[in-house]
């Protein structure tokens, strides 16, 4: 049977690996190549790497570094950060990336989604969205690059993204990022029920059961950051990934 994918999500900042807390205070957690090698050895389902500074610094993806990542990945690799053109995407695919992840560029220019997906297939285009609660507790789209809550309706934007050819939606929750106290299950339920493409839920996993809850809520895949790189109450860096058997028991029971 098809198992739900469990995807380590790594954040890059200036070539180093970091982990954020509610999108703030990026803490250095090590060398990305080393981490990717470990995840590869653990036979992870898939790997996601997001460069959190490329867009703001108006930088293109760091192709040289990403090519090294791809050389270590014997599983699908997706990359996001700084992609603003079909050419950027083409270059990433040609150096061994399977899927590219659009966020800021997709918000500003949804036609980029269709330009890339019509040429390379929708299976290779992820669109990621960040959700943050406003002061009234209402969930809204959030632009990390502008550090601003947006007024665009969440589902309207997701529908535009899917109609433009997004093959998967990455749904991240700013308020749950790095907190490790569970995911926004209500949000996952709401969005997964409304879309026809796979949903990758991200943000908040602190124990294996959080993954199961997200899957039960309709996520096709769960991406995990802090839980796979931190260990213990003091957040010591330790890269982990559940055994295949553990996941089988967790997700099939």
């Amino acid at each position: 049977m098809l198992r739900h994918r469990i995807i380590p999500c790594l954040l890059l900042k200036n070539g180093g690996l970091v982990k954020t807390y509610k999108f703030k205070n990026p803490k250095y957690v090590g060398d990305p190549i080393n981490a990717i090698r470990i995840f590869n050895d653990k036979e992870v389902d898939e790997l996601m790497v997001l460069d959190i500074t490329a867009t703001n610094a108006k930088q293109e993806p760091n192709y040289h570094l990403i090519e090294q990542f791809a050389g270590e990945c014997f599983m699908p690799l997706s990359y996001g950060g700084g992609i603003t053109s079909v050419e950027h995407a083409h270059r990433l695919f040609s150096i061994g990336v399977e899927k590219i992840c659009l966020q800021t560029a997709a918000l500003e220019n949804p036609s980029l989604i269709s330009q890339i997906s019509s040429r390379f297939g929708s299976q290779s285009v992820l669109v990621s969205i960040d959700i943050k609660k406003n002061w009234l507790g209402k969930r809204q789209l959030y632009s990390a690059t502008r550090e601003k809550i947006l007024s665009t309706n969440i589902l309207d934007f997701i529908k535009i993204a899917i109609d433009s050819g997004a093959g998967e939606i990455v749904l991240n929750s700013v308020d749950h990022d790095g907190v490790m106290e569970g995911m926004d299950i209500e949000l996952i339920q709401q969005i997964s029920g409304a879309i026809s493409v796979p949903l990758i839920a991200l943000g908040g996993v602190g124990k294996l059961n959080d993954i199961k809850l997200a899957v039960n809520a309709g996520a096709s895949a769960v991406a995990v950051g802090a839980f796979f790189v931190f260990h213990g109450p003091h957040r010591a860096v330790l890269i982990t990934y559940p055994q295949y058997k553990e996941l089988e028991i967790l997700l099939n029971s």
Partner: peptide
């Protein structure tokens, strides 16, 4: 109906 197309992921 919960099965999505494309079929994507690890499969026995």
């Amino acid at each position: 109906s919960s099965y999505k197309i494309p079929h994507m992921g690890w499969t026995d």
